[in-house]
């Protein structure tokens, strides 16, 4: 019995040998370890301008997210993967809207509704 099949299951390594998939996982692990170690180093070093640290850490986290997606979840840019990538792109869009939108609105709100310093602590409890 034969059925037609197209598309690519997310997380499926595809038609590659066990050996090359193992190499993919090991590459992913190596890169993830390097990026994690760099993150911890960046957070604790005094060499880097302290205002730039959160930005640097975010960039490292985005890079590591990419490593996990490509090497562990096997998300590719191939035509078989279009559905998975589109769903991921939509998810990322919503995440960015929720996080950036919340931060923007709340920062704005805090500035416009700024209380005297002694009341600020009370205000922030809510």
């Amino acid at each position: 019995m034969t059925i037609m099949q197209y598309g690519h299951a997310p997380g499926d390594a595809g038609e590659v040998s066990t050996r090359s998939t193992l190499i993919i996982y090991m590459t992913g692990l190596f890169l993830a370890v390097v990026l994690t170690a760099t993150s911890f180093w960046v957070a604790n070093t005094s060499i880097i301008w302290s205002t730039g640290v959160p930005l640097g850490l975010s960039v490292l986290a985005i890079a590591q997210m990419g490593i996990h997606l490509v090497f562990f979840l096997h998300i590719t840019t191939g035509p078989d993967d279009t559905n998975n990538v589109l769903a991921l792109a939509f998810g990322v869009l919503i995440v960015i809207l929720v996080v950036a939108g919340s931060l923007w609105i709340m920062t704005d709100l805090n500035e416009n509704m700024a209380l005297p310093a002694e009341l600020m602590d009370l205000h922030m409890q809510h």
Binding site: G7, A9, S102
Partner: peptide
């Protein structure tokens, strides 16, 4: 489309919605 692809694609959508929920907690 084979069931394997349909099932994992559905689960992928669930995972993304789960990550959207996490994004609210992160925010």
């Amino acid at each position: 489309v084979s069931k394997r692809i349909v099932v994992t694609y559905g689960f992928w959508i669930f995972l993304l919605s789960d990550i959207v929920m996490f994004s609210a907690l992160f925010a």
